[in-house]
């Protein structure tokens, strides 16, 4: 039996209701916990990863939902009590910044440490997949950065006092590399 994948549709502006209810203002709901909010236990000395998505006029996209998926410090994709490999945050509705508390992924074979980021929002018809690499790691020889060629720079985050910041540009001269994978 061969079926076709269900076609994608935009997550729309109210994606938080289903995927990040606290951002939508649904605190009183009688439901289970919000998923993806905590990648490390409270109190862990984690780094802050601040992701901003910019549109074609360089305005922050304030209604995006961003999921990240990464190896743990051990380079593995198996969750432990100390680390969940998956995180999910809405862009802040007023600033557009999505904040993750996470740990730096370990190296996995020839692949330099990296984080997969997946972005959905109003006006995005099919979720966008990209990666984020670290400016203070040896990224030479990473096969995906190699394929990105001159545009690989758009996949490198910047160092901050508390961790890293990364800007994802949907359009323009420095448009971020998005993958068909």
């Amino acid at each position: 039996m061969t079926l076709k994948e269900s076609p994608s549709q935009t997550a729309g502006p109210y994606v938080h209701i289903g995927c990040a209810p606290q951002t939508a203002g649904l605190e009183q709901r009688r439901m289970g916990k919000q998923l993806g909010g905590l990648m490390v236990p409270e109190g862990t000395d984690a780094l802050t990863l601040a992701i901003t998505v910019l549109d074609g006029e360089d305005a922050p996209v304030k209604d995006a939902l961003i999921e990240i998926w990464q190896a743990g410090p051990d380079g593995n994709y198996t969750p432990t009590p100390a680390f969940q490999n998956w995180g999910r945050q809405g862009s802040d509705l007023s600033t557009g910044v999505a904040l993750f508390k996470t740990l730096k992924p370990g190296r996995n074979g020839e692949h330099a440490p990296h984080i997969l980021a997946w972005i959905v929002a109003r006006g995005i018809n099919l979720g966008l997949t990209t990666r984020l690499y670290f400016p203070d790691e040896d990224n030479g020889g990473d096969p995906v950065l190699g394929l990105a060629g001159a545009r690989a720079e758009t996949l490198i985050a910047t160092k901050t006092d508390t961790g890293y910041a990364h800007t994802i540009r949907l359009q323009g001269a420095n448009e971020t590399v998005f993958f068909d994978v």
Partner: peptide, 25 residues
């Protein structure tokens, strides 16, 4: 209309699937 400023203009870059894309929560 919302796609006008949010649609990437470059084609998606094909990359091989690695453990990152083959696994998930």
């Amino acid at each position: 209309r919302s796609t006008h400023l949010r649609a990437p203009q470059q084609p998606l870059l094909q990359i091989p699937q690695t453990v990152t894309e083959l696994t998930g929560p």
